[in-house]
Design a binder for these strands. Structure first.
Length: 460
RNA sequence: GGCGAGUUAGCCAAGUGGUAAGGCAGAGGUCUGCAAAACCUCCACCGCGGGUUCGAAUCCCGCACUCGCCUCCA
């Protein structure tokens, strides 16, 4: 298959991917801030990460993925204080819900889900390293990163930062910065806020430091891949580079990848602030299946293009998933059948994904294959070997897609008996009886099809 | 204002110089006791205006519109 190329935000071009250590990929993915339920826009980025991870794995890499859980942050501090809860008490239900949603969407679990509140010492230590190298200063009890001490600042976001004006969008407690571009590493304690007593004084970590501290703790000082939503490019990831490289003097991340946003049906960015969002649990309550939500987020648009999320998109996804399911049933292959995917189709699939994760192209090729074989299944008999090969192709594709169900081909005795009973009724032209049994089976979750080769069934 | 992305059929979307993949929806047909599925046929002058080229959705210039980022939003 062709070499994997990925679009690196830092270079703003496609680059051939090669990990630092051959065969092994160290990947850090920016996870949720657990101040509330995550919405499907957040999960679009997660599914992009899942796609990347699965493609890497299908190409033989051993991937170590770490996803942070941000559980200290302005909104969490404020809301937990309002409800008189500890940070842990406040965030626990949202962390649980997040993991539930990941599971619903069939996202492969990361190796670690480190939490900011559990890594305060690591952050303090990192800030002390920065201090030793002259990158910090203290003002009003807060510790800041001095941008002027890090000439490479801006390499990721490519922003001209000279235009940032003090006071325009700067928090009240940050008036004491030397330069408006400087950012806070450690925030001095404010009255009524949760705080940690540390060598840096009482306070809490700034937003960016947790990702530097935790990613380097679990993955080492140089990561192969770091991902997140495009809105994190600046300032979050830019600041992570300054902090990490300022402390270690080594390249922090080799490939930066960013997912575009999900938009609402009118084309506006989905966000909590605009209240134009839906959560996974909202969609489930409306009757959409997890597989359709996954398919819509995964294949709705290339990860570097915005995706307008709508009911239409979800309905289309339901249809596409159904088509694949039907095809599996039609192949009528035993679960343990062995076969290899057709080489040309497999190559098209793999090559499309290697091309900066072009899953739309890959899925297009897959459906073309499905359609072609469906035609032949209709008009000619297709050998068991070829059907097994097609089945293997679907299995291969599903390593990435993970939306196709491969139901067990064995039925409970009662169901087998009902199917036989219905056949007798049909043979005797007792269609009323036959249809009644068909309805009964449907209620039991078994859909029957009468084909020229006899009756087929699938689980609903 | 600065930087960036985008505009392909009713909807979603691929395509990165050789006369438009795929999915959903729709119309007509085949098959079927009915149903379900599947199959066949039909459905695009690629935002607008110029230019380069034998040839452009694909390259260049201009215009229009949409969206994102520009200090704590994935």
């Amino acid at each position: 298959m062709s070499k994997l190329t990925l679009f690196n935000t830092a270079s703003q071009r496609l680059e051939e991917f090669a990990p630092l250590v051959p065969g092994q990929v160290r990947m850090y993915t920016c996870g949720p801030t657990v101040h509330d339920y995550s919405h499907v826009g957040n999960f679009r980025t997660v599914l992009f990460q899942d796609l990347l991870r699965r493609v890497l794995e299908s190409q033989g890499y051993q991937v170590t993925q770490v996803m942070n859980i941000t559980d200290v942050e302005d909104r969490i501090i404020r809301k937990s204080a309002e409800r008189a809860l500890s940070i842990d008490e406040y965030t626990a239900p949202y962390i649980d819900a997040y993991h539930e949603d990941l599971s619903t969407l069939r996202v492969e679990p990361a190796a670690e889900y480190p939490r900011a509140t559990r890594h305060i010492p690591e952050m303090v230590s990192l800030i002390q390293q920065l201090d030793a190298k002259g990158h910090t200063y203290v003002s009003d009890g807060s510790t800041y990163f001095r941008i002027a001490s890090f000439p490479r600042y801006g390499v990721l976001s490519h922003l001209n930062l000279s235009g940032i004006k003090a006071g325009a969008r700067v928090d009240v407690d940050e008036y004491s910065k030397e330069d408006p571009r400087d950012f806070v590493l450690w925030k001095a304690r404010k009255t009524g806020e949760h705080f940690w007593e540390t060598a840096l004084g009482p306070g809490r970590p700034g937003w960016h430091i947790e990702c530097s501290a935790m990613s380097m703790k679990y993955l080492g000082e140089t990561l192969d891949i770091h991902t997140g939503g495009v809105d994190l490019i600046f300032p979050h990831h830019e600041d992570e580079i300054a902090q990490s490289e300022g402390a270690t003097g080594k390249t922090f991340v080799r490939y930066w990848l960013h997912a575009q946003h999900l938009q609402d049906a009118t084309g506006e960015k989905m966000s909590k602030r605009l209240k134009n969002f839906a959560t996974v649990r909202d969609l489930l309550a409306e009757g959409y299946t997890p597989r359709a939500i996954r398919y819509a987020l995964l294949t709705g648009a290339h990860y570097r293009s915005p995706l307008a999320f709508s009911e239409d998109l979800l309905r289309q996804a339901e249809g596409a998933v159904r088509r694949l399911d039907e095809f599996v049933v039609r192949l009528n292959i035993a679960e343990d059948a062995t076969g290899l995917p057709p080489e040309d189709v497999k190559r098209q699939w793999d090559d499309a994904l290697s091309n900066d994760l072009n899953i739309q192209e890959a899925v297009g090729q897959l459906f073309k294959f499905v359609g072609g074989l469906n035609t032949r299944l209709d008009s000619a008999s297709v050998s068991e070997a070829e059907r097994a090969s097609a089945y293997a192709m679907l299995k291969h594709a599903n390593r990435i897609l993970d939306v196709i169900d491969f139901p067990a081909r064995e039925l409970e005795d009662t169901i087998t008996r009902l199917i036989a009973e219905r056949k007798s009724a049909r043979d005797a032209n007792d269609f009323a009886r036959a249809d009644a049994i068909r309805d009964q089976l449907k209620a039991m979750g078994i859909q029957l099809y009468d084909t020229k080769d006899g009756v087929r069934w699938k689980r609903l």
